[in-house]
């Protein structure tokens, strides 16, 4: 304050200020550049605060829990360093869950990509009732998850599965109790495929909507020009449409990966990770360990293993996106 008042006093008094660099700082803070920075950061502050509170606080709280021996009844606990992570790595269940999580995420992403793209192209074509179909197609995405999963549970039931009975009536499989009667949620490979399929069923309308949003932004003249140049459908899609809608595709893929990787509900409600871990994913393992068993620290550590899985994927996606923007 003294320096500031010295600086703002009459010309003679400013000579008594001993520190040259401080004068320079004061001078810089009054420059238009400094004021622009200040203004910019002030505008940015609410967003930073918002992200910090909504993302940073829960993340660092998870980190704190994962490095402590916290339990549901004792959240303030002893620091144990990386012990909980080591404990997870010692558990065979963890590796099964990790393997399934990767298979689940990659498999679901591929299926959603294929189905979403196909659906988007179909819905872009003009046909009677297109608006109604477009509205209907988002139903899986908007239905309360518990209700839709209970419906699927019933359809995949070992005894009353509507698929099985239909296939059996069509003589494509044997009757109930025969060796080729599929047990959708009971056979290891089939169980993982079934939970993946239900996740895809819920999520692919989102992929289609994202893709459609991008495709509507591509000027028809460009597509026409490509057609005139003799580009096939696949070439037009790969060389014209995808590069143009890449930013939207990347953001959509990023959202989708996060949603799939952290999907607890589908697996929890359909199989709860069973049988014998055939459908166990990191979120169900973390939930059963951290909340149902009360071992918050170890549950948090398991869930944090999702972070190194997601981080590289997000970095690659966002970098590619930035490179394409500039």
């Amino acid at each position: 304050m003294t320096q500031a008042s010295a600086g703002s006093g009459p010309p003679g008094t400013s000579l008594s200020v001993p520190a040259g660099p401080q004068v320079r700082t004061r001078a810089w803070s009054r420059t238009p550049t400094a004021r622009r920075y200040l203004f910019g950061y002030t505008l940015l502050a609410p967003a930073v605060l918002y992200v910090g509170l909504l993302v940073g606080v829960p993340f660092f709280f998870s980190l704190y829990l994962a490095m402590s021996d916290a339990s549901v009844g004792e959240p303030i606990a002893r620091f144990v360093g990386l012990e909980n992570f080591r404990s997870a790595l010692e558990s065979a269940k963890f590796y099964i869950a990790l393997r399934n999580t990767l298979a689940f995420t990659v498999g679901a992403a591929i299926m959603k990509g294929l189905l979403g793209t196909t659906l988007a192209f179909l819905l872009m074509q003009p046909f009677p009732g297109r608006k109604v179909v477009r509205a209907l197609i988002v139903i899986p995405f908007t239905l309360p998850i518990t209700i839709s999963i209970l419906g699927w549970k019933w359809m995949l039931d070992s005894q009353f599965s509507v698929f099985n009975w239909a296939l059996s009536r069509l003589h494509l499989i044997g009757g109930y109790g025969s060796a080729d009667w599929p047990v959708w949620l009971g056979q290891p490979g089939l169980a993982l495929l079934s939970v993946m399929f239900v996740n895809v069923w819920r999520g692919f309308p989102f992929s289609a909507i994202v893709l459609m949003a991008g495709m509507t932004s591509v000027a028809p003249e460009i597509i026409e020009a490509a057609k005139v140049d003799g580009a096939t459908f696949v070439q037009r899609f790969r060389k014209v449409i995808v590069p143009m809608i890449a930013p939207i595709l990347f953001v959509g893929s990023a959202f989708d990966t996060v949603f799939t990787l952290s999907d607890l509900s589908v697996v929890y409600l359909l199989t709860n990770g069973g049988p014998d871990g055939a459908t166990e994913v990191l979120p169900t393992l973390a939930y059963n360990m951290g909340i149902r068993a009360g071992a918050l620290g170890r549950g948090a550590a398991v869930s944090l293993f999702l972070f190194p899985l997601l981080l590289p994927a997000m970095i690659v996606l966002l970098r590619t996106l930035r490179r394409r923007q500039y």
Binding site: K153, S158, Q159, V183, L185, G186, Q187, T271, G274
Partner: peptide, 13 residues
């Protein structure tokens, strides 16, 4: 093999 997929209510049914 259906017992591998059962939930708490499956045996009731």
């Amino acid at each position: 093999p259906e017992v591998f997929s059962w939930d708490d209510a499956s045996d009731n049914r």
